[in-house]
Simulated assay, not measured.
Amino acid sequence: MFAYAVAAVFLLLFGAGVLRDRRRFSNAVYLGLAVTFLGLGLLAGLADAPPGVGVTVVVILLLVLSLGPVALAGLLCANGVKMVRKEGRRPANLLSLLAGLGMFGVMGLMGAAVLSRSTTLGIVVGTLLMVLGYVSFLFLCFVGYAFLYGRMRIRRDADYVVVLGSGLIGGRRVPPLLASRLDRGREVYATLAERREVDRQPLLITSGGQGPDEELPESHAMADYLVERGFPAERIVREDRSRTTEENLLFSHALMEAERPGSECVIVTNNFHAFRAALMARKAGVNGQVVGSPTAAYFWPSATMREFAAVFLQYKTVNLAICGALVLMGGLAYIAAAV
């Protein structure tokens, strides 16, 4: 009963957090803790389950815990190879491959610790597993809540649709990733426009400045892409100074405040980037919901890891302090074993 009570408390905190502001990472943590304690309560209740049910569940869990990491590591390595073939060898494209190889490495260390019966290696592996367990828990919280956030209904009272830039091909052409955002932006605009009076129609902001290897600002290429496909040019506002996502949001916010002070917006990016963009929008003081556009499935693992790493470092003081405390616990265990 205790685990269920704790799960209920965290579920209430999650609900209150969502009502207060959907764009908080604490919502993801509360949800993760609620699910964790609910799972512990269900496991504790297996003792009262009908004969055979408890044993079956335990066997399934053991199979998942033993074979699941091996399968996951293999899939990550395969995805990493595909990413390199399709997107090149940039460091960001190697994340899923490195994660898979890292998992195999940790499993190798665990096997070595068991076979060698080394106390030192056992403590090192135990400490590493504690740190990885903490990071993995946060990662699952991030992925789970990002999935839910991406499926929340679009706000119908927004005055602006802001499409974030992502770079151009050959210095002037819109790449498929950015085209996906623009197409999604058109859909969102149509949803908002159909319920608005003629004199209060929303505006669409294309946001992106000119990079050193680009022939024109991204926002201009984005606007041209939309106009060529029938979008009304007079409903487009071009934000052409930004170089980063933070600047996309800050400069777009300035344009909105200058034209319609206090207005709300819907921000469009790719689905893997939506939740982090929402966290950034909240930090920048932008009153807006973030929605995502479709992304190729093979792109997801590395992109999601990159997004999580950025969020993890956004709260680096707390996260690194906890990881440091876990390492300290391992060090104290080593000292105690050596005495």
Rank of each mutant, 00 (worst) to 15 (best):
S136E: 05
F139I: 01
V162K: 09
R156I: 11
V131H: 01
Y145M: 01
G150I: 09
L128G: 09
I154C: 14
L138Q: 10
S136F: 12
R153E: 15
G150M: 07
F142H: 04
G144P: 07
Y160P: 02
Y134W: 08
G126Y: 09
F137H: 03
F137T: 04
V124D: 10
G133Y: 12
F142G: 00
F137L: 04
L132C: 13
Y145G: 01
R156W: 05
V135P: 02
L168N: 01
Y145I: 02
I154M: 12
I123L: 13
I123S: 03
R151L: 14
I169M: 08
V161N: 02
G133P: 10
L164F: 05
V125Q: 05
G133C: 12
V143K: 04
Y160N: 02
I154F: 08
L140K: 03
D159M: 10
S166M: 09
M152W: 14
M130P: 00
L129W: 00
A158Q: 10
R151D: 11
M130Q: 09
L129C: 13
S166N: 10
V143M: 12
V135C: 12
L138G: 12
L128T: 14
L148H: 02
F142D: 00
R151F: 14
F142K: 00
D159V: 06
L132Q: 11
G150R: 03
Y149N: 05
L140T: 15
G170T: 09
L138W: 04
G167M: 02
T127M: 13
S166T: 13
R153W: 08
R155N: 13
D159F: 08
V162H: 09
Y145H: 03
V131R: 01
I154P: 05
I169H: 01
G144E: 06
G150D: 08
D157Q: 10
V163G: 06
Y134H: 05
A158D: 10
V135L: 10
A146C: 05
G133M: 11
L129K: 02
G144H: 07
L140N: 03
M152E: 14
I123E: 03
